[in-house]
């Protein structure tokens, strides 16, 4: 019986710092969690583009999970979460691996207590949270858990974005659009930045790696007056007592 940390290929290939943060947190809270070598891609884009490819990939991933005795996995990727909980059961009715997004994992009361999170700055800090499409459209949507985590951090004010939860603005990167047409994300991310500015938050937290990449690209162009952090990155910094400037 293996509990797996499943980072997702975007994080493994492009965002190793997020993988480290996720692993540190998960292992701190549940040391029996493991990382396995060369995990296969969940196949996200195939679900949009290739019926047979998606089916084949689903079965291969399921076989790989079974071969490694994985009974539960926690992922830091909102996309992997969505595809595992929404699409896999459509292709594999007997799919029985328990899937958690890291926000579901961290929001357990006992883990919140173990982490005892506090922002270490002298003054309270305002943060805000963006709901990604992958989490609002998943078969089991996630709205509350990240808010439970963030609103329980001492010395932090969680500000609502103008458009949040079901109404939240898409980052424009989904379904492989980011690979081909960044023009969509140029517009929508700028709109999300406008909302963050309006919220007066100093940090924008996202639980989605695709939104994160999209936000970070525009961050380097627009130089907004707020930080962009991935959920596990933010939590891990607080756990270490880092002040985020």
């Amino acid at each position: 019986m293996v509990k797996l940390i499943y980072h997702g290929c975007i994080n493994l290939s492009k965002l190793p710092n997020l993988c480290e943060a996720g692993t540190e947190l998960i292992k701190f809270l549940e040391p029996e969690y493991q990382e396995l070598e060369d995990p296969p891609c969940c196949g996200s884009l195939l679900f949009h583009t290739d019926e047979e490819g998606a089916r084949k990939n689903c079965n291969e991933v399921y076989d790989w999970l079974k071969k490694n005795n994985v009974t539960e996995l926690t992922t830091i990727c909102a996309g992997c979460y969505n595809y595992f909980v929404t699409f896999y059961p459509q292709y594999i009715p007997e799919f029985d691996v328990k899937i958690n997004h890291i926000s579901q994992f961290l929001s357990k009361p006992e883990y919140m207590q173990m982490l005892d999170l506090k922002y270490p700055g002298e003054k309270k800090i305002k943060i805000t949270y963006h709901d990604p499409c992958h989490m609002k459209n998943a078969r089991i949507p996630i709205f509350e858990e990240p808010r439970v985590i963030l609103s329980n951090i001492k010395n932090v004010d969680l500000m609502a974005l103008e458009w949040e939860r079901e109404l939240s603005t898409c980052c424009g990167a989904g379904a492989g659009v980011y690979s081909s047409f960044k023009e969509v994300s140029n517009f929508t991310t700028a709109d999300i930045f406008r909302q963050v500015k309006k919220s007066r938050a100093k940090i924008l937290i996202t639980p989605c790696s695709f939104c994160y990449v999209s936000f970070k690209r525009l961050e380097s162009e627009k130089n907004p007056r707020f930080k962009i952090l991935k959920l596990e990155e933010f939590i891990n910094k607080l756990k270490k007592g880092e002040v985020i400037e």
Binding site: C9, I10, L12, S13, K14, D38, P40, C41, G43, L45, L46, T49, D50, G53, N57, G176, S179
Partner: peptide, 12 residues
């Protein structure tokens, strides 16, 4: 990306 998922199990 799609080819990479099929052949390398990772689009990136």
């Amino acid at each position: 990306y799609l080819q990479n998922i099929t052949t390398k199990k990772n689009p990136f």
